[in-house]
Design a protein around this nucleic acid. Structure first.
Lengths: 358, 358
DNA sequence: TTGTATGCGTTATCAT
DNA sequence: ATGATAACGCATACAA
């Protein structure tokens, strides 16, 4: 559609003169151009670029010169076609705005640094069906690796991943038998630990407030329930959940709902920090003293938790590190290094603050 | 590396029997397989898949059947190589965790829907140099379009974009002469409007608190300064900025810094909502009455602003819509429809709340 | 509307 | 260590 400038065009002409007529040239120097200029075969250039140790120092120097002189850059599509392998890592997350996954994705990008590996990102919107569609789509590109969120893939997706022919990392959660590799932490234990802390702080009518209720939220709820039942304090009235996506406004609403069901509620374990912050504001508005009349505990421990008034207790999760680690595992596997263990538990850490210090 | 299952393998064998030996086959059905099964030429399959109207209904049906029967999926790399055009849109943002860009990226993905266009995302980390590197990298893929953030590219990047040979959309800001297309809003006007509102509310010693101070922050500051100078109330002591990335904790710190410089500060226009929220908590902690002793205005108007205690005034920005619109503009251009105007101002809206109602 | 011949830019394979 | 040749899977150019 658009033509290049004259200087670049000249290169094309000189190149095409030697091949009768080439109507389809893209206008960029190819590996053949570099080869000709360096006085070697194309395949030698290819080798020199991929693994310099395969080529003698002398030719390597000539080739490097030619590459710079022509401003040659390999065509990733041609490379992928010829080698049946794209320098691409497919990443599937359920949400791009949820800070949890935003942090994880940032970790992935940061660990990649200036590597030539590209990220192909897919947003599943928490839908296993959409996840399946995206896995198919990504697989058609023969990616170097796949990173997927969670362990609750559909049966079909799981089979696709098992026969993908590339490293696969499931992230965010722990699980018994990963498709391939796995890095995350236990949401069940996270929920249990938070709840036990509230119990130890002296709260008794501890509620659970949850939004979205995706598989990981469910496991945190299960951890909460386990702890409450162990203390013989579980009461279904204490659980307030919705499928609505999480937000601060929703936190306030859910607290109101929870109080309507259980007037004697004296603490809440919130599914995430946004809800917790919404709960805090609702308490401020209703003049409910935190932590005296109401304990509040969040999940993820975003920065804001420590500056709230009062500062809010939360479970710190290794979101960023999960991203980085997943890429490291992919790298190790691609370099043919054994990855052990294939299941990595990055843990979590309860950050106790004023909001639960009764 | 990995071999496919037997059933698929059978297909390979039958396919390869007719071509002597093929050691490089990837094991997946190709367009030739579909063509053979449908009793047509490969090019006809190619056409039927890209634009069904080019092929007779009869053949189309045969081809569709064959496609389903073989489970054929086109190879995007082969397609890109042959057509010199990848079904890929390159997107460059300065940050993935900044909710502003996360929302924009979400808009981009949502507008794309189930389209076969893939997103290639790059994180420039607010570095024009890194942006330049990524533009080069993306361009080597011959993307269908490029979406870049802001209008402050390096000269080299700008030239690369101008000769990219594909639609280019600059997003988030307004500007005189875009590379190609542009969608955003005026950060200068946003800053000016917020400041004028604070002035009208009766505040006089209005401070500006800013973090990161990227080009867009600079323009908001310029808007603030313009309004203050117009009111003959500008005072350098009222401006408190840092290059540190924005966060809630930082908001509190900056307020403390600002108060140290100007004890009579009676309001702050914050560069973004995180800072504003940090300021609010700091006020709560120091028992500074909001909005009586201190007015607070943020920027972006995230959900949390309306549930804070008191609710916080902010400038609502069309982040999500910018993402959607940018893709629409790309689509229109790719469909050869004229895009007019090529510069789209999506505006902003001041949301006045209790935090500035003195 | 459909088909033939060929090119896209690179790498796998085999040979030297 | 280096090279010649033939794929990789699809789309363009042109012919019929």
């Amino acid at each position: 559609m658009l033509r290049r400038g004259a200087s670049v065009g000249d290169d094309i002409v000189s190149r095409n003169q030697n091949r009768k007529v080439s109507r389809r040239s893209s206008g960029r120097p190819t590996i053949a151009d570099v080869a000709k200029l360096a006085g070697v075969a194309a395949i030698t250039v290819s080798r020199a670029l991929r693994d310099p140790s395969l080529v003698s120092a002398e030719l390597r120097a000539q080739i490097d010169t030619a590459v710079v002189q022509l401003g040659y850059a390999p065509d990733p599509n041609a490379r992928a076609l010829a080698s049946s392998r794209a320098d691409v890592i497919g990443v599937l997350v359920p949400s791009l705005t949820n800070i949890v996954f935003a942090d994880t994705v940032r970790g992935i990008y940061d660990e990649l640094g200036e590597s030539p590996l590209q990220i192909l990102m897919g947003n599943t919107h928490y839908s296993p069906r959409e996840e399946e569609r995206l896995v198919r789509m990504f697989l058609s590109q023969r990616p170097s690796a796949l990173i997927v969120s969670g362990v609750d893939q559909t049966e079909t997706t799981r089979k696709l991943l098992e026969t993908a022919g590339c490293p696969v990392v499931q992230i965010m959660e722990l699980g018994e038998d990963p498709v391939d590799m796995l890095v995350g932490f236990s949401h069940f234990e996270g929920g249990k630990t938070a709840t036990n802390h509230l119990l130890e702080a002296g709260y008794r009518r501890i509620g659970f407030i949850g939004a979205r209720m995706d598989p990981r939220s469910q496991r945190r709820l299960a951890g909460y329930r386990w702890a409450m039942e162990e203390a013989r304090l579980f009461d279904p009235k204490l659980v307030t959940t919705t499928l609505t996506p999480s937000s601060m406004p929703l936190g306030g609403q859910l607290l109101a709902d929870a109080l309507a069901k259980a007037h004697d509620l004296d603490a809440v374990f919130c599914n995430n920090d946004d809800l917790a912050m919404g709960v805090l504001f609702e308490c401020q508005r209703a003049a409910i003293a935190v932590p005296q009349r109401m304990g509040i505990c969040g999940f993820n421990d975003l920065d804001m938790m420590r500056v709230a008034h009062p500062p809010l207790t939360s479970v710190r999760t290794p979101r960023y590190d999960i991203g980085r680690r997943s890429v490291q595992m992919v790298r190790d596997r691609l370099a043919d290094r054994a990855v052990s263990p294939a299941i990595v538990d990055l843990g979590f850490e309860l950050q106790i603050r004023e909001s639960t210090m009764r």
